[in-house]
Simulated scan of single mutants.
Amino acid sequence: MTPAARKCLDQLRTLLRPASVATAGGFRPPSDPATSWFCRAVGQPGESLPQWNGRPMIPILQIRIDELPYVPEQLAQLALIVVFFDMEDLPLDRPHGEGWLIREYTSTDGLVPLPQAEQAFKPLPIRWTRIEDDAPGWEDAWSLPINMDALVADDAGSDAFSDNFECHDQTKVGGYPADIQGAVGLEDFMFQINSEDRVGLIWGASGMAYFFRLPDGTWRWSCQFD
């Protein structure tokens, strides 16, 4: 391996990120509904499921922030978020509020279970595990301040990247986005929702959904498929 390739890998090790990785089910659901869930949600008294095109959106993911072993800085001031989607007509390239919505709560006090819409998904509670070594995918790594050209020019270096660095592809908060088709983009990345077989949640053909929160609090999302 060339010295330049080795230096690139050493620099990459300093840029690994922590993340909170989700595991669906496998334990008794908690009695408190304001905890982390796939496909179940709470809201303020009087709130209902958000509507789009005359039908209720489905709560895909509920995250209780103080359950996360790692919390991105932009989420630290929140107590709970709920991600809603119109899964009948996936809102690709639509802004927040048009076919998808994220509700934010600064406290869990007084939150109550929302009505459950008809859905094909199996609601499951979530446990979170902290990892320390999340790495970017190959294409997103090019936006980091390291010389990736040195790896392209060195077979041993590019093999070491593939063998020793992992971008975890589970549902997770923090870390780097796990790409499927190419670069996702690193700026303002907050979390990703994987296709969850146990829940029955599939994005297209076993895809991944990525969520970004801008400094002004605006949300955006993107999705990649196999």
Rank of each mutant, 00 (worst) to 15 (best):
M1E: 12
M1D: 10
A4K: 02
A5L: 00
R6E: 15
R6Q: 11
K7T: 02
C8S: 06
L9P: 02
L9S: 08
L12M: 14
L12T: 06
P18F: 06
S20D: 05
A22G: 03
T23H: 13
R28Q: 13
P30I: 03
P30C: 11
W37R: 02
R40L: 09
G43E: 09
G43S: 02
P45G: 04
E47R: 00
E47T: 01
E47L: 05
Q51H: 10
W52I: 00
G54M: 09
M57N: 06
M57H: 04
I58C: 01
P59F: 09
I60P: 01
L61W: 13
Q62D: 09
R64C: 14
R64Q: 13
R64S: 13
D66M: 06
D66E: 14
D66R: 15
E67Y: 04
E67I: 06
E67N: 10
L68P: 01
L68T: 00
P69K: 08
Y70F: 15
V71E: 06
E73I: 14
L75C: 13
Q77W: 12
Q77N: 13
L78H: 11
A79M: 09
L80G: 03
V82M: 04
F85Y: 15
F85R: 00
M87V: 13
D89T: 10
D89N: 05
L90Q: 07
L90C: 12
P91E: 11
D93M: 07
R94L: 07
G97W: 03
G97A: 04
G99F: 08
G99K: 05
R103V: 02
E104Y: 05
E104G: 00
T106R: 15
S107Q: 05
L111G: 01
L111N: 03
L114F: 09
P115F: 05
Q116D: 07
E118M: 07
E118V: 12
E118P: 06
K122F: 09
P123W: 10
P123Q: 10
L124I: 10
I126V: 15
I126N: 06
W128A: 04
I131M: 05
I131C: 09
I131N: 08
E132N: 09
D133A: 15
D133W: 11
A135E: 08
G137N: 11
W138G: 00
D140K: 11
A141S: 15
P145L: 14
M148G: 05
D149L: 14
A150N: 01
A150D: 10
V152L: 14
D154W: 03
D154C: 11
A156H: 10
A156Y: 02
G157V: 00
S158K: 10
A160P: 07
N164I: 01
N164P: 04
E166H: 13
C167F: 02
H168E: 12
H168N: 14
H168M: 07
H168V: 14
D169A: 11
Q170G: 10
T171R: 07
T171A: 14
K172F: 08
G175V: 01
I180C: 09
I180F: 08
D188G: 08
M190K: 06
N194F: 12
S195A: 07
E196Y: 00
D197K: 09
R198Y: 12
V199M: 07
A205I: 14
S206L: 12
M208E: 11
A209I: 00
Y210H: 03
F211S: 00
F212Q: 02
G217Y: 07
G217W: 04
R220Y: 04
F225D: 12
D226Y: 12
D226P: 14
